[in-house]
Simulated scan of single mutants.
Amino acid sequence: MAPLKVGDKFPSGIEFAYAPITDPSPTACGMMTTFSCDTEFANKRVVLVSVPGAFTPTCQANHLPPYLSSASALAAKGVDLICVIATNDAWVMAAWGKANGVPPESESNVRMLSDSKSEFGKRFGWSLGERNNRFAMVVEKDGTVSYAECEEKPGVVTVSGAEAVMAKL
């Protein structure tokens, strides 16, 4: 299937595995559950960010931290939810969030989600074999994609970074 593009409707039925961050302790694990985009994205402006892997060099140093430090600025521009997906399992995503200071979900608009088999990335042509490529999209409250960009070179964060997304809001 072709990658999602500006003007497309975000597809229904998309789900990710999710272990909610309920406690900042790295030894406390939430119960894994299903994150339904149909439910969680409803009437929300969402930034969906994909990275190849939790704790990997570029993702850890240059991709996730700017989104976390820009969470308030993104909220001020009308973003209700920032969802970060990678091909790691839900507990690794939660641990990565905790290691980077993502607060419990009751205090945060950031969700660390698992696309463990790269199903979303493969379905929309944005995968790197068994991992998702590095991309970002904005889904508006009506479900319309208003921004969708994928990096062309590995290890580079330009069009999928927080700064690029903020410039388009």
Rank of each mutant, 00 (worst) to 15 (best):
residue 130 E to K: 14
residue 133 N to Q: 10
residue 107 E to D: 14
residue 35 F to I: 13
residue 60 Q to V: 00
residue 100 N to F: 04
residue 37 C to H: 07
residue 116 S to G: 12
residue 56 T to R: 01
residue 130 E to H: 10
residue 37 C to I: 08
residue 111 R to S: 01
residue 74 L to D: 05
residue 142 D to F: 02
residue 107 E to C: 00
residue 116 S to A: 10
residue 109 N to S: 13
residue 39 T to L: 06
residue 70 S to C: 06
residue 145 V to N: 05
residue 107 E to F: 04
residue 132 N to C: 14
residue 64 L to Y: 14
residue 98 K to N: 07
residue 46 V to C: 12
residue 135 F to K: 03
residue 54 A to V: 02
residue 74 L to R: 05
residue 66 P to E: 03
residue 127 S to G: 12
residue 54 A to H: 05
residue 95 A to Y: 13
residue 141 K to I: 03
residue 68 L to M: 15
residue 77 K to M: 01
residue 108 S to Y: 01
residue 105 E to M: 09
residue 65 P to Q: 03
residue 117 K to Q: 15
residue 63 H to Q: 15
residue 92 V to A: 12
residue 64 L to H: 05
residue 55 F to R: 03
residue 87 T to E: 08
residue 84 V to T: 10
residue 116 S to H: 12
residue 67 Y to K: 03
residue 94 A to D: 12
residue 52 P to S: 07
residue 72 S to R: 12
residue 145 V to L: 08
residue 57 P to V: 00
residue 50 S to W: 06
residue 39 T to G: 00
residue 40 E to F: 07
residue 61 A to R: 12
residue 96 W to K: 01
residue 114 S to C: 01
residue 34 T to P: 02
residue 84 V to A: 11
residue 132 N to W: 05
residue 91 W to H: 14
residue 129 G to Q: 07
residue 43 N to H: 13
residue 92 V to L: 09
residue 52 P to M: 08
residue 33 T to I: 05
residue 76 A to T: 05
residue 103 P to G: 14
residue 129 G to Y: 01
residue 58 T to I: 09
residue 54 A to R: 02
residue 94 A to W: 05
residue 74 L to C: 07
residue 121 G to C: 07
residue 83 C to V: 10
residue 146 S to H: 13
residue 53 G to W: 08
residue 47 V to E: 01
residue 103 P to H: 06
residue 102 V to H: 04
residue 79 V to F: 00
residue 116 S to M: 08
residue 137 M to D: 06
residue 42 A to R: 11
residue 36 S to I: 10
residue 110 V to W: 00
residue 40 E to V: 04
residue 76 A to F: 03
residue 112 M to D: 07
residue 107 E to L: 15
residue 59 C to W: 07
residue 63 H to G: 06
residue 59 C to Y: 08
residue 39 T to K: 10
residue 114 S to W: 04
residue 35 F to K: 11
residue 100 N to R: 00
residue 80 D to F: 06
residue 33 T to A: 11
residue 60 Q to M: 03
residue 32 M to I: 14
residue 77 K to G: 03
residue 51 V to L: 12
residue 136 A to W: 11
residue 49 V to M: 15
residue 104 P to G: 10
residue 51 V to I: 15
residue 72 S to P: 06
residue 68 L to F: 14
residue 33 T to D: 07
residue 57 P to Q: 04
residue 73 A to W: 00
residue 113 L to W: 01
residue 142 D to T: 09
residue 127 S to L: 01
residue 95 A to F: 11
residue 115 D to H: 04
residue 73 A to N: 09
residue 70 S to R: 06
residue 48 L to F: 15
residue 44 K to C: 09
residue 71 A to E: 13
residue 74 L to I: 13
residue 126 W to Q: 09
residue 114 S to K: 09
residue 115 D to S: 09
residue 47 V to C: 10
residue 93 M to L: 14
residue 134 R to Y: 10
residue 115 D to E: 12
residue 137 M to Y: 03
residue 145 V to R: 06
residue 76 A to D: 15
residue 57 P to F: 15
residue 50 S to I: 02
residue 96 W to N: 04
residue 86 A to L: 04
residue 85 I to D: 08
residue 37 C to S: 11
residue 122 K to P: 02
residue 97 G to Y: 00
residue 38 D to F: 02
residue 130 E to N: 15
residue 101 G to D: 02
residue 83 C to G: 03
residue 77 K to L: 12
residue 75 A to G: 11
residue 78 G to T: 07
residue 36 S to D: 08
residue 70 S to M: 11
residue 135 F to I: 01
residue 62 N to M: 10
residue 115 D to W: 09
residue 66 P to Y: 08
residue 41 F to G: 03
residue 84 V to Y: 00
